[in-house]
Amino acid sequence: MSPSIDPESIRVVPMTLEQAEDITAWRYQAPYDVYDMVGVGPDELLDPEAGLYSVMAGSTLIGFRSFGPDGQVPGWDYDASALDTGGGMRLELTGQGLGRAVVLAGLEFGRARFAPPAFRVTVASFNTRALRTVKYLGFERVGTFNATRGARNFHVFVRAEHRKGEDAPPRA
């Protein structure tokens, strides 16, 4: 875990133009460069239909979360049984143990804002850190496919949301 970031301070908030400009400039090393937002303008991130939000630790932008179609990868037959969610973290913070706290903050935000019956994530098969995180957080793999663009292999995971009175999934 990054010593300078308190996991309790992580929260999801509406994205500002300055944050969108910052995020669109992030560039990852291969093979994570598939997550670069090359050709995406900051205004596209701010479009409410995009469903993108900033992840903050105190007053510092550390990542983003998406809710809806942005979390979908062409090639899978998505349906309305779950809310798709995805996201990214600032390059220098990846691999430091913050993933669980960031995803949990996203799930808490998504639960409060959208009240979905389940969450769904689509993760590239090479992304071992993300795969480990979503499995730890109770997501179950429901399928694997090759994307229609780039032919990369992806796994689809779902985590059912439990309602009051039901057994809750384990928390990190």
Score class of each variant (00 low, 15 high):
V40E: 03
T85P: 01
P48T: 12
R141G: 12
P42T: 08
P116K: 09
A115M: 08
V142F: 05
P69W: 07
E92Q: 12
G138E: 11
F145M: 03
R100Y: 00
L52G: 00
G51A: 12
G39L: 06
F114K: 04
A115Y: 05
V55E: 04
A147M: 01
A101Q: 01
T85Y: 05
G88F: 02
T60P: 00
D70A: 15
G41C: 04
V102A: 06
V121T: 13
G106E: 10
A118P: 10
D84L: 12
L131D: 10
V142S: 09
P116M: 11
L91T: 12
G71W: 02
A80P: 00
F67V: 05
R113N: 03
G143T: 07
P69S: 14
L137W: 08
G41M: 08
G97W: 07
N127Q: 12
L45Y: 00
G99V: 05
K135Q: 14
D47E: 14
F145T: 03
A115H: 14
A147K: 04
L61P: 02
G110P: 01
T144L: 08
F114S: 03
G71C: 09
V123I: 15
K135F: 00
M37G: 04
R141M: 15
F145W: 08
G95C: 09
N146H: 15
L83M: 14
L131A: 11
I62Q: 02
G88Y: 02
A124L: 10
F64G: 01
V38T: 15
E49W: 03
G99E: 11
L91D: 05
G143Y: 04
D79S: 13
P117E: 12
G41K: 14
A105N: 09
S81K: 12
V142C: 14
S81G: 13
L61C: 07
F64K: 08
G95A: 07
L93Q: 06
P74I: 02
E108V: 01
G110Q: 03
K135G: 04
F109S: 04
F119D: 06
R120M: 13
L137Q: 08
R120V: 02
E108D: 13
F126P: 02
E92V: 11
A80K: 13
G75Y: 11
R65S: 08
T133H: 03
P48M: 12
P42L: 07
L52K: 03
L98V: 03
R141H: 10
L91E: 11
T85H: 09
